[in-house]
Design a protein around this nucleic acid. Structure first.
Lengths: 235, 235
DNA sequence: TGTACATCAGTGAACGCGCGTTCACTGATGTAC
DNA sequence: TGTACATCAGTGAACGCGCGTTCACTGATGTAC
């Protein structure tokens, strides 16, 4: 039991190191993340950090995993907060808004996972699982729609190469959604992050003023195009 | 006349410096761009570069301007290469493919302009003009469509805030396109770069294999959604 | 055309800084008998 | 419960490196008369 005192302190400090690192990348960007800087902020000597992370890259990996987890959790919570589960468009919009809100509140972390990759850094396998967390939420909405018969099964014609790739994807992952719907889903997914990136990386600057209104309108359109009907008039 | 000998040599070296810098960011990313490294590659001493660029940031700015220019020129050429000007969907697809091809061939430069901003670097005014070059090509396609009556004027309902922003944008820039069409245009624009970024930044990895086929299918769908009809069956 | 002077490109040393990582060490915290 | 030993966290010095930028300088290239 007393053993865990040491373990608890260790966990706590690990958390504090990551927090300080997050603050640092928020101020100067991920490439400028420096172990010495983190150590300085915590009043430690830089070599002490090596008790917690074997290298700078491992610290970066931990931050990436945390970021994917955080945005995934935000999406899950937003989806779960929609009471009328059959309101698929409402769920989509809620998740999209949650992703944007998280991105605005954690710009550097967003850039870390959805911006240009940190040069020289190669993401290890550990990041794959958490990366799929938000995607799973979006896929669940699609799957619910298909199950309820609310999604047009897909008159959308696809080139053979794309259809084959999507068939493979379904087989590998067990996603229960027809290829055409899956195709539109990936499009919507990339539209979501395209919109967030455009706003965050400054490309909407001097184009549109009310970014939130624009985002909502864009995501509403995206939901319609996906075939997600607003709640009441289900066909 | 002989005066220009010096000027020509100067222009040539300026070009070589930028080329070496591009090679460097292609290998290690923009944040790692170093004047000393560039000088080393050219067999000069680092201080000599200050005869050509007053600081590292100015070199970066020049690279950004060049990149916007290059992708803009690629888009213009692709658009100009479509003989049947009334084939709006074909023009859109050609420009989209050109943007993607340029991005694939110049990954670091793409990341420089459409990826996460280089931390600590603030883009000066000079980058705004070139940044609009590609956008202008896309807008011209829309404007042509509107002029030819080929684009549905826009039954698309927009929230008041968005509509007002777009009205302002039209007034400021003299864009000759109704707000609903403009809205869909911006959506298509961000879909285009969302798709390229997703592919380049690795988010399509283990999702889809044939990236080119997927991109083409995505952009074809985007063109349809914009209301751009394939050439022959104009309504 | 020929000379005196101004302009410019490039050199090399230096300043002051920060970085990741290693290593031998001191003490404190836990464990086993 | 008390002592001997092992584990672990944190220190401080050091290695070897790279960076942007400044500055006084040497020569070569151009200009004006």
């Amino acid at each position: 039991v007393t053993t865990n005192a040491r373990a608890r302190v260790r966990a706590e400090l690990t958390r504090e190191i990551k927090e300080a690192a997050r603050r640092q990348i928020d101020e100067a960007g991920a490439p400028a993340l420096s172990l010495r800087g983190v150590a300085r902020e915590l009043g430690m000597v830089s070599s002490a950090l090596y008790r917690y992370f074997p290298s700078r890259d491992d610290l970066l990996t931990a931050l990436i995993v945390d970021a994917y987890d955080a945005v995934g959790a935000a999406g899950e919570a937003a989806d779960a907060g929609v009471r009328r589960r059959e309101d698929l468009a409402g769920r989509w919009l809620a998740v999209a808004r949650a992703a944007r809100a998280w991105a605005l509140a954690n710009r550097a972390e967003y850039a870390l996972i959805y911006g240009s990759p940190v040069p020289g850094y190669r993401a290890p396998e550990d990041t794959i699982g958490p990366a799929n967390r938000l995607t799973a939420v979006l896929l669940a909405i699609l799957a619910d729609g298909v199950a309820a018969g609310a999604l047009p099964a897909g008159r959308h014609a696809l080139p053979a190469a794309v259809r084959a790739d999507l068939r493979d994807l379904r087989a590998r992952t067990g996603i229960d959604v027809p290829e055409p719907v899956l195709f539109l889903g990936i499009l919507a997914w990339s539209q979501l992050f395209g919109a967030i990136s455009f706003e965050l990386f400054g490309h909407l600057h001097s184009v549109v003023e009310d970014h939130e209104a624009f985002f909502d309108a864009a995501m509403t359109t995206t939901a319609e195009r996906l075939g997600l009907q607003p709640a009441r008039r289900r066909r």
